[in-house]
Amino acid sequence: MIKSLKYQLPAILWLVLVLVICNVPMNDIPGSSQEYYEGFDKTVHTGLFFVLTILILYGSINSHKSLFLSFFTIFKIAFLSFFFGAFIEVLQWKVFTYRSGDWWDLFCDTVGVGMAVFSYLVLCRTRHGKKI
């Protein structure tokens, strides 16, 4: 268990970064008063969770020393990423009251997870001779 965690170090660091970014007061971030475009926050959520899921998949590939992860492993990774997104939204709703938990943020987190899993399935499984 501990030995396989060394492959997940980038994912763990990214997870901590996402936790900090999603729970810091927006007033403390320079330039946060201006919004780049409507929905920018949702794009950021999608990107953060896309990268998180890709890093977890990458760590699992290195841990198993194979490009081909079982569907159960892929499901566990997707569920873990989704659960982390839900955990952040609950924290924003109940603990960090200066932020608001939002269903649309959780939806965008889930879209990022889905994009990462889809990317893995298309790029790693299909391109290397194994059918999805």
Rank of each mutant, 00 (worst) to 15 (best):
F84R: 02
S100C: 07
I61H: 00
D41N: 05
S33Q: 12
K65M: 11
N23H: 04
P25L: 12
F87N: 02
F107V: 14
D41A: 08
V95G: 07
T53R: 01
G59A: 09
F50V: 04
L91Q: 09
S81L: 08
L17N: 00
M1R: 04
V51L: 15
A11M: 03
G47C: 11
T97W: 03
V24F: 06
F49D: 08
Y7T: 02
I2Q: 09
M1A: 09
V90A: 12
H128N: 14
L48D: 02
I12K: 00
G31H: 03
H45A: 05
I29P: 01
L69C: 07
L121Y: 08
F75R: 05
T97S: 13
F40Y: 13
A11C: 03
K6S: 08
S33E: 11
N27R: 07
T97L: 15
M26P: 01
S100R: 10
L57W: 05
R127I: 10
K3S: 13
S119Y: 12
F71T: 04
I12M: 12
I77K: 01
M115V: 14
P30N: 06
I12R: 00
E35Q: 10
K76T: 12
V122R: 09
D41V: 07
S63G: 08
T97G: 07
F50D: 11
Y120M: 11
L67S: 06
I56V: 15
T110N: 12
E35F: 08
L9I: 15
S70D: 01
V90N: 03
A11R: 04
Y120S: 08
I56G: 01
N27I: 12
W103S: 14
G114M: 09
M26E: 10
C108Q: 11
F49I: 04
F87P: 00
S119D: 07
Q8D: 05
L19C: 10
Y36C: 02
S100P: 00
V20W: 12
Y7Q: 04
P25D: 06
I29W: 03
V44T: 09
V18C: 08
Y58G: 01
S70I: 01
I61N: 00
Q92R: 06
L57K: 06
E89K: 00
F96G: 06
I61V: 15
H64V: 10
Y120I: 05
C108D: 13
K130E: 13
Q92T: 05
M1Q: 02
F96A: 11
S81K: 00
S63P: 05
